[in-house]
Design a protein around this nucleic acid. Structure first.
Lengths: 340, 340
DNA sequence: TTTATTTACGAAACCGGTTTCGTACAAAAA
DNA sequence: TTTTTGTACGAAACCGGTTTCGTAAATAAA
């Protein structure tokens, strides 16, 4: 902290060149006010001294930081990892920096993070909300401060901004319909949140498929996970033990899939003979699980990329206004051996 | 961009309170120069107006940004995803912000990223170098500018700074020894880089185990992946086809494991009967692969956490000096069914 | 009572850029 | 020739904090 290496500043360049600070600044930004000859002298020296302008000085004056804030519930999940890739791809291309924050599914943490964003630290934000998030003053507060925000995957419907999602309803419907076609008469729906719109949609798709096939919807078939792996595990075990032979299971989110394998192993239930399983998942290893997992695979990279593109596009316009629209990028149902 | 909402600045607070800007600033930072009563008035107003100090103004003056830069080769890999988690855990606790950059294994990209860091954008950096990285002027340049940097996992031995690694040599030795004990007389070593120290160490551990068991080291048994999935795939296929019955395979990095499953499937080679496999991997799904994968599991979270802790500790000291030491956190060999 | 400290605060410089505005000189138009 | 316009640049304000330094008033020491 004491003494940072005496960095080369624009002032030094100016002195060295016998020019004023403003001239140097303009030359660097290729202003038409500066002659070609002077510009050349400046960029030559910039190269020679390896001048790196202080981004914070610039941010302070211009009020933008070329930085976007990304808020995720977690990162050790293929979906989010791939989404980051998508986000980074546009950030890199467009010269933006990305600050990453994890809410760990906590509403309070998410609030703190977004509150910090009110400081002007980021030009815009990309968020996939925590499962706990129900209120959303923290989000509207940002929007009111004219800090653009786009949701991806886990959105809040009520907020008027751009949202990038996948066809959750339809995907759950397809998955459920497949299970029914394959003979399941009881289908457990593993849910990780009772409030998230994404969960709601998936559940609705599931319900619709049941209805269309004259199967009664039974609340007891919804298995509500709570992020407490021990309890969740026992609950799942109990439910699977109680389930009828040939039941189906839909894991509405990736992390709920592996526990099913585990429980089945313990209960000596064979997949797919005794239990058929479909999971929303982006695991690369899905094809090599035992047995290979039938998945609803989300276009994670594309979703991240689309969200970032829309955000950046808004940032580049003079008056960015993010339309209140929902971009839907379709998931695909990849049938493997965990279903008959 | 036009008009950001008129944010509340320290100047407004001062005017509102009838105090000077400096007094307000000091009150906020709990300076002893300010009376308790005044401090209270200030923090009350701060609360009331939801004042968020502009981080860039502060950074400009104080020369530090409470931000660390994290440079990774990729993110869609369990190891790095978990490492980010570890890093974030200390960043969150210590009030640091984390900027994420991906080199995508490109040396040029890595150079650009580090060059940007010379601007003072970050207080310190955490890096796991790209597989292409051989030269390292870009890293020493940072160090010379007194920007502390700690390596994790993929380190550069020659550079004198703190490095957090795992016991690569020993782990590879253990894995190889296990395969030999299980009867393998030919063992393929899947390598993803010929220059990275991490690869070198793993290879050495492999060689040592061979030697100890009077097995000859054959260069032809090293399968060099090139990040070109099609070619790599064909190469692996060729090598496996040529390999003797009961051969062993060591995937020196996670992403090389699944291709082995794939190729074995195509060649109708059974794991572990025809091919025994061990992979360096942090995949949660390893236990549920077909067959379950024997892994060298790295303490990814802990490594990220340790690296971040050391970095932050250095940043908090008046004269941060990162010792030229290597912190080794041990991996564990988890034996599953992909080995006999 | 006088002098030395301490307490509590304000004025102003400063961080390193960007941007506005003013101007000298040259070239073009009247 | 005079006026207008354009070109190329510099002075200085500005962004919003932090920090140094100075000082009036209150308190303690002499």
């Amino acid at each position: 902290m004491k003494q940072k290496a005496n960095n080369v500043t624009i002032k030094k360049l100016a002195k060295e060149l016998g020019l004023s600070i403003s001239t140097v600044s303009k030359a660097i930004s290729d202003s038409h006010e500066i002659s070609a000859a002077t510009k050349q002298r400046v960029i030559d020296l910039v190269e020679k001294l390896n001048y790196q302008p202080n981004p914070y000085a610039s941010s302070l004056r211009t009020k933008n930081s070329k930085t976007i804030g990304v808020v995720l519930p977690e990162v050790a999940d293929s979906f989010f990892a791939q989404a980051i890739n998508g986000i980074e791809s546009v950030a890199e291309e467009k010269g933006y920096h990305v600050l990453i924050y994890l809410s760990h599914e906590s509403f309070e943490r998410e609030e703190q993070i977004l509150k910090d964003f009110e400081s002007g630290r980021v030009d815009g934000v990309l968020i996939s909300v925590a499962k706990e998030t129900v209120r959303h003053k923290h989000i509207t507060a940002l929007l009111e401060k004219k800090i653009p925000l786009v949701f991806f995957d886990r959105v809040i419907e009520e907020i008027e901004t751009t949202k990038v999602t996948t066809n959750d309803f339809e995907s759950a419907w397809s998955a459920t319909t497949l299970l029914i076609k394959k003979g399941c008469r009881q289908i457990l729906f593993l849910s990780f949140s009772s409030t998230l719109s994404i969960s709601g949609k998936r559940l609705e798709g599931y319900k619709k498929a049941l209805l269309e096939n004259k199967l009664k919807f039974t609340p007891g078939n919804i298995v509500a996970f709570n992020n407490d792996s021990k309890k969740d595990y026992l609950l799942l075990k109990k439910k699977l033990k109680q389930s009828e032979k040939g039941a189906g299971v839909i894991a509405s989110v990736e992390k709920l899939a592996l526990p099913v394998y585990q429980v089945c192993e313990e209960l000596q239930l064979r997949i797919p003979e005794d239990v058929q399983l479909i999971s929303f998942s982006n695991l690369d290893s899905a094809a090599f699980l035992h047995p290979p997992l039938t998945t609803v695979t989300q276009p994670a990279f594309e979703m991240g990329k689309a969200a970032a593109s829309l955000l950046v596009k808004a940032l580049e316009r003079k008056n960015f206004e993010l339309a209140d629209e929902e971009i839907v990028i379709r998931s695909s149902l990849i049938v493997r051996k965990s279903t008959l």
